[in-house]
């Protein structure tokens, strides 16, 4: 607790920060596009962390340690964002000035909504299935397939600068993401009851 307080006290008095103005793509020296060389991304991530990670500053001044935690956190955030297709897609759009407003965002496509409702129902009924785990696997596969389709949709729309279509694709992917989280939670609960 003391250390925590001390660190905070120092942070309050020292307001100098690292330069975070680069985009994540610039940071990793990669072109701003949806297609990405994940191996290169991983390698550059490791190189950057090798420079800034707090372990490199364990014996350094308080100021350097504080900056290193900031810098390493920023690099981690950048890496997480670019590593996953959904967050990468969303980030690309925010770089183009597209807004994502949680309150107003709904996917407007009725066919899509129907699909969501169906999948949700299937998920709820999993408990009553004779083999719940394989039922979950099926739904999981369906979600994965749809995600891949949406990624392709996004890639096409983004390349053609059709930002609203691209945005819709991202919103739909977000829906599936949430559904996938629920599926995971369900899987965990099922496993616990089996134990």
């Amino acid at each position: 607790m003391r250390l925590r307080r001390e660190l905070y006290g120092l942070a309050a008095s020292m307001s100098v920060d690292l330069d975070f103005s680069k985009s994540y793509f610039e940071l990793f020296g990669l072109p701003e596009s949806f297609e990405i060389d994940t191996a290169q991304l991983a390698e550059r991530y490791r190189t950057l962390q090798a420079t800034l990670h707090p372990d490199r500053f364990a014996s350094a001044s308080d100021q350097e340690r504080r900056l290193s935690v900031q810098g390493a956190s920023w690099i981690n955030e950048a890496y997480e964002t670019l590593k996953v297709p959904l967050s990468r897609a969303r980030y690309l759009l925010t770089l183009k000035g597209v807004d994502f407003n949680a309150d107003k965002d709904t996917a407007s496509d009725p066919a899509f909504l129907m699909q969501q409702i169906e999948l949700r129902e299937q998920l709820e009924e999993v408990d009553t299935q004779p083999d719940p785990f394989s039922a979950l696997d099926q739904i999981s596969r369906a979600i994965r397939e749809r995600n891949l389709e949406l990624q392709e949709q996004f890639a096409g729309a983004y390349a053609a600068d059709e930002l609203e279509t691209a945005r819709q694709a991202v919103l739909k992917m977000q829906f599936f993401n949430r559904l996938f989280d629920e599926l995971r939670r369900k899987e965990e609960k099922l496993e616990e009851t089996l134990m």
Partner: peptide
């Protein structure tokens, strides 16, 4: 440390740039 805080930040930024 206070006197060199700006300097330290510049050095770290430079480190990242050169990487």
């Amino acid at each position: 440390e206070v006197a060199s805080e700006e300097y330290v930040a510049r050095r770290m930024n430079k480190s990242v740039q050169s990487m």
